[in-house]
């Protein structure tokens, strides 16, 4: 099986007021291409930090993150930005749509950044897939939370990422809407064959992936296949 993400001896410490705070401690795992995975753990366990490191949003203190064959540790922030643009998609708990851009434009941004062609049609196509084709000209504040997260999903898939990171994608949504968003996320993921990494403390959501990595106190304490994988 091909590996898309390879984490080796990953540690992250913060220095604060002269004290060293270890957030992640010697984490090792790798992720198969096209798989769906969940990182779970209690608040403050370090799972968001791990996500940030995996996605190249931050730099590790020790160890390496190899994403799609590129060692992120050796790259500058600007280079990592380009890696993100080319291989990575994001979905956030609080949607993080650009408030000054319409739904359609939000979806277009990653494509535009890549300098692709036929952007508008492809973005519209994506919005259609998330069921919001008619709302393309609306600004985020004019959309409900569920709708915003759907736009955000469309944006995440727009650059055909190899890997998609989702940080509590349903955390800010009511159960029913959350359910719909989850379904959309998994469906699109399956269609595109994208690797998915979810960060959540919702075990039910985690259960819908193939593999669950448990973090506690900055350490990887369990790595288990779910029922779906078997």
């Amino acid at each position: 099986m091909e590996t898309i993400l390879d984490i080796t001896n990953l540690s992250k410490t913060y220095k604060s007021a002269g004290k060293t705070l270890s957030v992640l401690d010697d984490i090792n795992f790798n992720i198969e291409t096209g798989s769906a995975n969940a990182i779970v753990g209690p608040s403050g366990s370090g799972k968001t930090t791990l996500l940030g490191l995996c996605a190249g949003l931050d730099r590790a203190t020790l160890g390496s993150v190899v994403l799609n064959g590129v060692n992120l540790n050796n790259l500058s922030e600007d280079k990592r930005a380009q890696v993100r643009n080319q291989f990575v998609g994001f979905i956030f708990q609080n949607f993080q749509l650009l408030p000054t851009l319409t739904a359609l434009e939000n979806v277009m941004v990653p494509l535009e950044l890549r300098g692709e062609k036929n952007i508008r049609a492809r973005a519209l196509d994506l919005l259609d897939k998330v069921g919001l084709a008619s709302r393309g000209h609306h600004y985020p504040t004019q959309l409900s939370g569920g709708e915003q997260q759907r736009v955000s999903i469309a944006r995440a898939f727009s650059n055909a990422p190899k890997i998609l990171f989702a940080d509590e994608p349903t955390g800010n949504l009511d159960a029913e809407t959350g359910e719909k968003v989850q379904k959309l996320l998994f469906d699109l993921n399956k269609d595109a064959g994208t690797t998915l990494i979810l960060v959540t403390h919702d075990l039910e959501l985690a259960g819908k992936t193939q593999r669950i990595l448990r973090i506690k106190g900055g350490k990887l304490v369990a790595d288990e296949k779910t029922a779906i994988a078997q």
Binding site: V70, Q82, E112, N159, A160
Partner: peptide
């Protein structure tokens, strides 16, 4: 998705001025 898969990372993307203006 219709986008062609690009496996080799191209890290030398130049600044697209028109997009910045947009």
């Amino acid at each position: 998705m219709s986008t062609e898969y690009n496996n080799t990372p191209n890290l030398k993307r130049s600044v697209q001025w028109s997009w910045l203006f947009k």
